[in-house]
Design a protein around this nucleic acid. Structure first.
Length: 793
RNA sequence: GCCGGAGUGGUGGAAUUGGUAUACACGCUCGACUUAAAAUCGGGUCCCUUACGGGAUGCGGGUUCGAUUCCCGCCUCCGGCACCA
């Protein structure tokens, strides 16, 4: 008897599959439906961890099964190879980020290949390849041309220790930089933005029709934060100025007894000559500007503010004159940066009003002040007695306001003062005006003669070549944009490049897109729900409007996977010493085993947290050993009836479970089958081959080896999924429950599909049942075929 | 605070969507094999009870012949948003 030597077997087949180009995918195969299965391309950190295995090897089961079921499946892999870690490594170890990245891609490719996944490696791409970022730049130019990209001054996160701007995602929740640990400050800089806010409504509304998990949709809705309300103008007394506010409660307008401007609001500066306490006001504004966002938005903070003495506004509802304050509880970037304050019906306004002794006018009948609920209006002139919902529209109309929506979503800041990213393809004329770089100069290459020894500036600004290149093309005094793109720009369209990775004249041929898009199944990490998934949905919609892609939404199904924890149930981390190295596991038990273990821990489509369980992986290994054992006893045998029934059941169940990404229950059913084969008699070679086909997506190496061992020449993975036979699914007899008044009292065996009468006859004969029924009269009986009979007395 | 998801054995998790709760696996335990251990194989394993029975799917109600599943009210955990007007 040969032994299951996974090392030899896995190496052998991986080599063979690669040599025979088994998984290279054509854009079209007659009679086969195309299916695009996508997993998030990894950052080449240099080492594969368990999370990568969970992310890539489990969806491979799906890709393989669909391929065997007659579909033409695209399952590509690439690298998200621009980004901060390469640059940090470069600074720390004095290595070229390019070399560091390429080295990592090499090792990770090797590791990825050890999974034995059915990736089509011929379509591999890397975001840092000039062939790729040429098109990232090209797409940005299209956005620029369409008015979707603009340069604007914005508050950005400034790390005072590292002397650099940080991305929002590089700022920890406590307001410190992730690298330096320094408290992040606010700075105002000219940056490039993309108008994702133009698409806010479509990004919310189009979620409706997507068949995505509610959790993912809800997170996106919360992030976009759409709220309906009204914009209303308040006149500033004695001037031609107006203060525009956004409110979700125009129905409470009669209760607006003061106004508040954000410290950044431009009106104060305009009116400074009429503000008698201007020095006090400027002092407050300066203090507010120095505070971080975290400090300013701390919930437990007491309200502060300053009255603009000599300035007042007119409430358009009742023409009363009301004071105007500046306070940092009003945020510049939300709404209009100014509010009408209704202390009787808003908790924050109430708190402020109490502190500053401002009048409160109750205009909605309800409970205690502040009352924020619904109700009937009072103290509101002609609107008294009106339902507050109706009043929202009516009052807005009367004061000439406009019903609008407001969003939390802000435009996407894509500039990074970093080296290792795609250069933003823009140059500036001697007057400092930006100009797009003409297409023929793409890719606008990342310069190489740079130094990281700069404080507060992009490393690109140290390149002599970069400036010379710009001047030689555009003329004396012209300068290049020194910032690079956020890496989320790269990853917003990579799934389109897989379709046409070598095209030199187009980012992705639309004819090829038509064959594959939208992505049928996209699986990835939950942390990307409001970043990458939102950005790429926006990108795709913008490209749709530019007629560069074929659909409105890029992903038909999005699925977030869970997290694999250490054996101690804590998140794996070097400091805790609980990191499981997948390479070690593969060496010990094999790639098939690791993959199946990960598929078995729980339903893949639900975001669970699963501790790594050494016993659990041993259990899977035992199962694979048993399959190997059974395979040696299939020559010249006939399948027993019980085994045949279980086999057909297994084919059906595994097929259905794979469609729902419930690999755990599919594996469970295969275990039941193997247990049955071992206990209840033999299986024929032909039937065993059916089982091998079902197991093939889960354990591709083992099954291929057995397949070959029992005399097959062609690869198992090119074979078809077996067809189960309905007639073998049912047994002649079926066990059903007999209940008396809803409680199970006995189990009886009756012929399958027995009639109600027959079932009752047999059931009543049962000793226990008749004991429970006694003399009482059966009022009613509920009969569920092949399942139960319930006597109600 | 608002919104979403989820609570089932010692553990990961099943349950044909209203029909025999706890499949499968881990762990534990008893036994076989062994000088012994590992590996392997076989039995047991929700709780109470000697048994007959009874009770359990976060808690409390309801609908139903029958509820893990549907409805109402709580509790806890996870996730998103949050001085967002």
């Amino acid at each position: 008897m040969r032994s299951y030597d996974h090392r030899k077997i896995e190496a052998k087949w991986q080599e063979k599959w690669e040599k025979e180009k088994l998984y290279e995918v054509k854009d079209e195969v007659a009679g086969r439906k195309n299916r695009y299965v996508l997993v998030e391309y990894p950052y080449p950190s240099g080492n594969l961890h368990i999370g990568h295995w969970y992310a890539f090897s489990v969806p491979d089961i799906y890709a393989r099964a669909k391929r065997m079921q007659g579909e033409n499946v695209l399952f590509p892999m690439g690298f998200d190879s621009f980004g901060l870690p390469a640059e940090n490594a470069a600074i720390k170890n004095k290595v070229d980020p390019r070399e560091w990245t390429e080295e990592n891609i090499k090792t990770m490719t090797k590791q990825l290949k050890s999974m034995g996944n059915s990736f089509d490696w011929s379509r591999r791409l890397a975001a840092s390849d000039p062939d790729y970022y040429k098109w990232t730049q090209w797409l940005f130019l299209k956005f620029l041309d369409a008015g979707l990209a603009y340069r604007g001054k914005a508050a950005v996160n400034w790390d005072p220790v590292d002397q650099t701007v940080l991305a929002n995602e590089q700022v920890l929740p406590d307001g410190t930089g992730e690298r330096s640990g320094a408290k992040v400050e606010r700075r105002y800089l000219e940056q490039w933005f993309i108008r994702i806010t133009d698409y806010a409504d479509r990004l919310v509304d189009d979620l409706e029709v997507l068949e995505w998990p509610e959790q993912i949709k809800e997170s996106q809705r919360n992030w976009i934060g759409r709220k309906s309300g009204a914009e209303i103008d308040f006149k500033v007394t004695g001037t031609s100025e107006k203060i525009k506010v956004f409110t979700t409660r125009p129905d409470t307008l009669f209760g607006a007894t003061y106004m508040v401007l954000a410290p950044e609001h431009e009106l104060a500066e305009k009116l400074k000559n009429s503000i008698s306490n201007w020095s006090k006001v400027t002092k407050y504004i300066k203090e507010a500007e120095l505070k971080s966002d975290i400090d300013r938005t701390a919930l437990d903070k007491e309200k502060t503010g300053v009255l603009l003495e000599g300035v007042s506004a007119i409430n358009p509802a009742n023409e009363s004159e009301i004071p105007v304050y500046i306070a940092d509880y009003v945020l510049a970037h939300y709404g209009t940066g100014a509010i009408m304050a209704v202390p009787a019906h808003d908790e924050r306004d109430h708190e402020f009003a109490v502190k500053f002794g401002i009048e409160e006018v109750e205009v909605v009948e309800g409970g205690n002040i502040p009352y924020t609920g619904e109700g009937i209006l009072k103290n509101s002139g002609e609107f008294n007695g009106m339902d507050n919902e109706d009043a929202k529209i009516k009052i807005t109309e009367r004061v000439g306001g406009a019903l609008t929506n407001n969003y939390k979503l802000r435009d996407w800041l894509v500039s990074r003062q970093r080296y290792w990213g795609a250069p933003i393809p823009v140059v500036y004329d001697p007057n400092g005006n930006p100009h797009p770089i003409p297409e023929e100069h793409l890719p606008w290459l990342l310069p190489q003669d740079i130094s990281f020894d700069v404080k507060g500036k992009s490393p690109l600004s140290t390149s002599k070549e970069f400036v010379e290149r710009t001047e030689s093309i555009f003329g004396q005094g012209w300068t290049p944009e020194m910032d690079t793109f956020d890496t989320f720009v790269d990853s917003s369209w990579y799934f389109l490049r897989y379709l046409d990775p070598k095209n030199e004249s187009d980012f992705s041929d639309i004819k090829k897109q038509k064959k594959w898009m939208p992505v049928d199944m996209y699986s990835g990490g939950a942390e990307h729900t409001t970043m990458h998934v939102l950005y790429s949905r926006f990108f795709y919609k913008a490209l749709f409007d530019l007629k560069l892609v074929t659909d409105k939404e890029p992903y038909k199904v999005r699925m977030n996977r869970g997290i694999i924890l250490g054996t101690d149930g804590a998140k794996m981390s070097k400091s805790k010493g609980n990191v499981i190295d997948p390479d070690d596991q593969v060496k010990n038990v094999g790639a098939d085993c690791v993959k199946m273990y990960l598929a078995f821990v729980g339903p893949y489509g639900e975001v669970g947290t699963y501790p790594w369980d050494m016993g659990g992986i041993a259990g899977i290994r035992r199962f694979l050993e048993r399959v190997w054992g059974v395979s040696e006893k299939v020559e010249g045998t006939e399948t027993s009836e019980n085994v045949r029934r279980e086999l057909n059941k297994t084919i059906k169940k595994v097929e259905e479970d794979i469609d729902e990404f419930k690999f755990n229950t599919a594996i469970s059913q295969m275990m039941i089958l193997v247990n049955k084969i071992e206990k209840e008699g033999p299986i024929s070679k032909g039937d065993f081959m059916k089982f091998l086909r079902v197991l093939a997506p889960f354990a591709p190496h083992l099954t291929e080896e057995i397949w070959e061992g029992i005399g097959n020449k062609k690869s198992l993975h090119l074979d078809d999924w077996p067809i189960y036979e309905e007639k073998y699914l049912q047994s002649e007899e079926v066990k059903i429950a007999v209940q008396v008044n809803g409680k199970v009292r006995a189990t009886i065996s009756i012929p399958t599909d027995s009639s109600e009468e027959e079932t009752i006859k047999v059931a009543k004969k049962d000793n226990v049942v008749s004991k429970w029924l006694g003399d009482s009269k059966v009022k009613k009986q509920i009969y569920v075929k092949n399942r139960l009979i319930n006597f109600v007395t």
